[in-house]
Nucleic acid binder design. Structure first.
Length: 253
DNA sequence: CGATGGTTTCCTGATT
DNA sequence: TAATCAGGAAACCATC
């Protein structure tokens, strides 16, 4: 499946989000996984935020976690059990008090995205006037999500991993995407974030294809993984081909 | 343009 | 013996 797909057709700056990377939301909120009842197309990127459903709002939050490297544990997801219209009608102060420490980032992300896509702002006009100059975050890629419907032409199953800029995110998304994983990786302890590489050569090939580097090997890939030990993305596990997500990895739960 | 971060490449040596 | 692991060193490259 991956072999025949040309990622370059997606174009630069296009951010896609896979439904296969969202299970942490469903776990935290005790909601059923949408795939359990046949919903698999993430459409929040192609419709106006004020049209979002509650689920779209959560999908957007997950996207923000990845995009801005936010610790999902610090976001009170339960506070966001609202639809897009309710979300957009919040004043900035309401938003920040509901969203916790990342309130300002999330608020700016939401409203700057609308602004850059030349969509009407739907926030409180007082807040809009007060904070319009505060939209200083660099969210070019995020804005791109609202600009067109290019992603709709790409089958949902092809989207996993496209947003994975880094090796560990690529591996995380493979672990969360059973259909694409193809037994390359498996969880050893899902709760502890421990996983095993079952097909080292296949993993290297997949990563090499992702980076357009035919010379990638597991030897080199594993060196990159060992660099993660010092940054807390991975923790050492004293077993061959076994790794563990560390304190600074997110989105794998 | 320089600084920076995240690899990629290569390497020596140890372990399984 | 081959595969894997541990890191040092440096090159590479995209982004800021």
């Amino acid at each position: 499946m991956l072999d025949s797909y040309d990622y370059s057709s997606c174009g630069p700056g296009l951010i896609l989000y896979s439904p296969l990377s969202w299970p942490m939301l469903y776990e935290q909120l005790d909601w059923p996984n949408p795939e359990d009842y046949g919903v698999s197309n993430p459409s929040w990127t192609s419709i106006l935020p004020e049209e979002w459903s509650n689920r779209h709002v959560w999908e957007w939050l997950q996207f923000c976690c990845d995009q801005h490297k936010l610790d999902a544990n610090c976001i009170p997801f339960a506070q966001f059990n609202v639809n897009g219209r309710q979300l957009c009608s919040m004043t900035q102060s309401q938003f920040i008090s509901a969203a916790g420490i990342y309130g300002e980032i999330l608020y700016n992300s939401l409203h700057q995205s609308q602004s850059k896509a030349d969509l009407p702002l739907v926030c409180d006009p007082v807040d809009k006037e007060l904070h319009i100059d505060e939209r200083t975050l660099n969210l070019e890629q995020n804005a791109g999500c609202f600009e067109g419907s290019q992603e709709q032409s790409i089958p949902a199953k092809k989207q996993a991993g496209l947003q994975s800029h880094h090796l560990w995110e690529f591996i995380r998304d493979l672990l969360l995407s059973p259909e694409e994983n193809n037994d390359v990786l498996e969880w050893v302890d899902r709760n502890e974030g421990i996983f095993k590489v079952l097909k080292s050569d296949s993993l290297a090939k997949l990563w090499g294809r992702r980076k357009k580097n035919e010379r990638m090997t597991y030897e080199k890939l594993s060196r990159a993984l060992r660099h993660y030990y010092k940054t807390g993305i991975l923790d050492r596990v004293d077993k061959r081909l076994v790794y563990k997500f560390g304190r600074n990895a997110y989105g794998w739960r």
